[in-house]
């Protein structure tokens, strides 16, 4: 694919013992675009995410991240926390992983850890209360406040994250990922469990994140209304391999995709797909 890619996945394979979860997968994600990764349950989408974000080490294949300044980073060579710290890839989780005993605000402060660590002079400046640290801390709180405002949770800033309603937790997790100032945001089923109104609000949030922050988004999603509405490019997986890719329209009409989703029953598949738009 031509164009400006932020992420290039090349022949990615992930095996667990004898099971091949992802087989020889290649696709690109374009800069400042929303790329959706869809497919039936067990297709290997989350495994791809875990490889990209360093939780799994791929069996073979490469994942290249190209920053705005043309700097290339081979993601498979970095492990866990360095992916977020150095490669600027942030993620959310399928089953929300907030810090439930910390407030919404604290969650967003933790996300700014690395910047704040530098500002606090590896804790020592912070311990003596140096002015430079104070200003940095204030800036971090402002940044967090800004995001709380954007996701509509400013009134619940001081409530424990574990006490927030489900939809709010989903949005807070996205805001937390954004507080790490990522270049690529990976969202694992952000609309799961949301009602129609919340899904629509989520679509809006994601579009505005892309527009305002120039962040590229990689998305796993089952909610077709969200996928169809906001994706620029869709990659479809089934049984660990890519079976189709293209614009949402192309993918939607692809018989292979329909077959993968609902067995061979095409009519039913089309009905579902259409109800989603």
């Amino acid at each position: 694919m031509s164009g400006d890619c932020i992420l290039t996945i090349d022949h990615l394979t992930m095996r667990f013992g004898g099971i091949v979860a992802v087989h020889d997968l290649s696709f690109d994600a374009e800069r400042r675009k929303i790329t959706a990764l869809i497919g039936p349950n067990g297709a290997g989408k989350t495994t791809v995410f875990n490889c990209i974000t360093g939780f799994y080490k791929p069996t073979s294949g490469t994942m290249r991240l190209t920053h705005d300044d043309r700097r290339d980073i081979q993601l498979e060579r970095l492990n866990d926390f360095r992916i977020s710290k150095q490669a600027k890839v942030a993620r959310t989780f399928q089953n929300i992983r907030l810090f439930p005993g910390m407030t919404a605000l604290e969650n967003l402060m933790v996300a700014q850890h690395n910047a704040l660590m530098r500002a606090s002079g590896l804790t020592f400046l912070g311990l003596i209360g140096a002015p430079s640290w104070r200003t940095a801390e204030k800036r971090a709180i402002d940044q967090a406040t800004l995001w709380l405002d954007r996701i509509g949770l400013i009134d619940r800033a001081d409530d424990a994250a574990g006490n927030l309603p489900y939809g709010d937790q989903r949005r807070l997790e996205i805001a937390r990922a954004m507080c790490t100032e990522p270049a690529l945001l990976c969202l694992d089923e952000p609309a799961a469990g949301l009602n129609a109104r919340e899904s629509a609000a989520l679509s809006e949030l994601l579009l505005s994140i892309r527009a305002d922050h120039g962040v590229s988004i990689l998305l796993i999603e089952h909610d077709m209304s969200v996928v169809m509405e906001i994706s620029d490019h869709v990659v479809v997986m089934d049984y660990g391999v890519k079976i189709a890719e293209g614009t949402p329209q192309n993918v939607r009409d692809d018989p292979k995709v329909i077959a993968a989703y609902l067995g061979a029953d095409e009519e039913e598949a089309i009905a579902v797909m259409e109800s989603g738009t």
Binding site: F81, I83, S84, A90, F93, R97, V110, H113, T180
Partner: peptide
């Protein structure tokens, strides 16, 4: 404290656990 709450999330946020 974040580590106590969720180590995996910490790693995803770039914290060297």
């Amino acid at each position: 404290e974040a580590l106590r709450e969720d180590e995996v999330a910490c790693r995803a946020l770039g914290i060297n656990t």
